[in-house]
Design a protein around this nucleic acid. Structure first.
Lengths: 265, 265
DNA sequence: AATTAAGTTCCAAATAATGGAACAATGATA
DNA sequence: TATCATTGTTCCATTATTTGGAACTTAATT
């Protein structure tokens, strides 16, 4: 009875909050502001119930209702996110090392962490003309077709990895995107051995990267950093060369966390 | 019984959600991750209740619990915010005009909207070396001591304005910050007449700006755009000169909204 | 080892959410 | 303009969740 967009059952134990989050997901994932009836159809709840739920969320600023009766994500979310980002310890510690790596290679550097099945990008340092950052930072990307994602997966204990991979639905973004759990798991094993990962145009055609895993000892953060760029400029040979500096930068970030957060994490 | 940080009573009709949002506010506004007991003291709720509430929010990714039992804002908020920002129509329409204004003046240009008592910055276009953007975008600043804030206030109908101003608590960020409703209301009236506002180092010492109001016809967005810079470079004379281009840019943004969103808004 | 503090679980009572239907407003069509 | 269809809002008895107190477990401190 309780289901989300892609038809998978959802049995979370989060009471009232869980129901509201489903609605927030609907509104924020839509391509355009939704009308009451649209949400009614998607959520499959009684009109009265839905109306009250939406009213409460509008009142709290999580979603907004415009003059045409369309529901859009609320701007209060920006304030929450800005605070969340500004004080994130992992990001603060990594920042200078990302800048170093960018200078050393001239290409774009990313920092991302695993959350559920997604990689959430926490930072991005670009080469020449720094483009709009926010359009990338905060973005959630699939873990199975990004360098940072596969690097993060290589940190999981065997059982968690199998569970997570089993729950993925593989979307083929390009011709080289992994299409099955088997091939993905095989590559993850390889990555775990060698300590770095590649993205061979698996998420976006013409874009490739080399990534290294980064984690905090308490496993609050399991993610990675990557050097990303256009395939015509970044040959596999070059990416292989860069595996070393990426791993070194990853090591320095983890060393920084040990110093800052104390040895027991 | 239900109170927030600054002791003001809070009587919202948002049921369970309202209580959870109070907690999310606590966690995101804190200077550092909070321990269970810290939150217990701040929230003033029974242990069992608080524990379940926090568990639910952790489960949903709104807050995170690290290995030391400290609660921090959740990174899922970043994903929500990134989507909220990426598709915001007001921002999308304003973007090119902000860039024009930046080029014309060489100084930093902001776009912000009024939400409650705060201005939430939706965009920022910087001059020479584009600095980290996200550190500004999404930030909530007081409405009574920012150029965009006062410009936005000048759009409110008399009664709403008085109500809002009456609910403000005036923090003196600098020597020139407004300290009372009277002086603020007097300036707002002036701004409403002339159509532009100044910030004379009222929020941050050494930083001033000139701003013009921008709004959508349905009043979903009431905000403004501003040209901001260091006081040593931006004399009051220069700011007065820039009032015209800022107002023109504001006009073009509103024209763009009429075209895009239809004439009835 | 004893003591204090911190975190977790349990359950009857209090409270809020639900869902169905009736009602109101809007907009399309003849 | 009158009619019908659609969309959005309000109400209230029923149902389900949240609440708050206490008991319990675990971790840290003396």
């Amino acid at each position: 009875m309780n289901s989300n967009g892609d038809g998978t059952a959802r049995a979370r134990e989060t009471g009232t909050l869980g129901k509201l989050m489903v609605l927030l997901d609907l509104v924020t994932h839509a391509d355009a502001p939704l009308r009451f009836t649209d949400i009614l159809a998607l959520a499959g709840q009684p009109r009265g119930t839905l109306h009250r739920q939406l009213s409460h969320m509008v009142e709290e600023g999580l979603i907004e209702l415009d003059g045409d009766g369309r529901y859009a994500p609320g701007l209060r979310l920006l304030d929450f996110a800005a605070r969340s980002w500004a004080r994130n310890e992992f990001r603060l510690i990594a920042e200078p090392h990302l800048a170093d790596l960018q200078r050393a290679t001239g290409e774009t550097v990313h920092l991302g962490v695993l959350r559920g099945q997604s990689i959430i990008y926490l930072d991005k340092v670009e080469g020449r003309q720094p483009v709009r950052m926010y359009s990338q930072i905060g973005n959630a990307s699939p873990c199975y077709c990004t360098g940072v994602g596969k690097a993060a997966l290589s940190l999981l204990p065997a059982e968690s990895l199998v569970d997570l991979v089993a729950s993925l639905s593989f979307t083929s973004f390009t011709a080289s995107t992994h299409g099955s759990a088997e091939t993905l798991l095989a590559e993850i094993r390889e990555i775990a051995d060698q300590g770095y990962a590649f993205d061979r145009e698996e998420h976006e055609a013409g874009i490739c990267c080399v990534a290294a895993p980064v984690w905090s000892e308490d496993r609050t953060f399991m993610g990675g950093i990557s050097i990303t760029g256009p395939a015509y400029r970044l040959s596999m040979e070059l990416l292989h060369q860069w595996a070393v500096p990426v791993q070194l930068a990853a090591g320095r970030i983890m060393e920084g966390m040990r110093v800052r957060l104390g040895p027991r994490r």
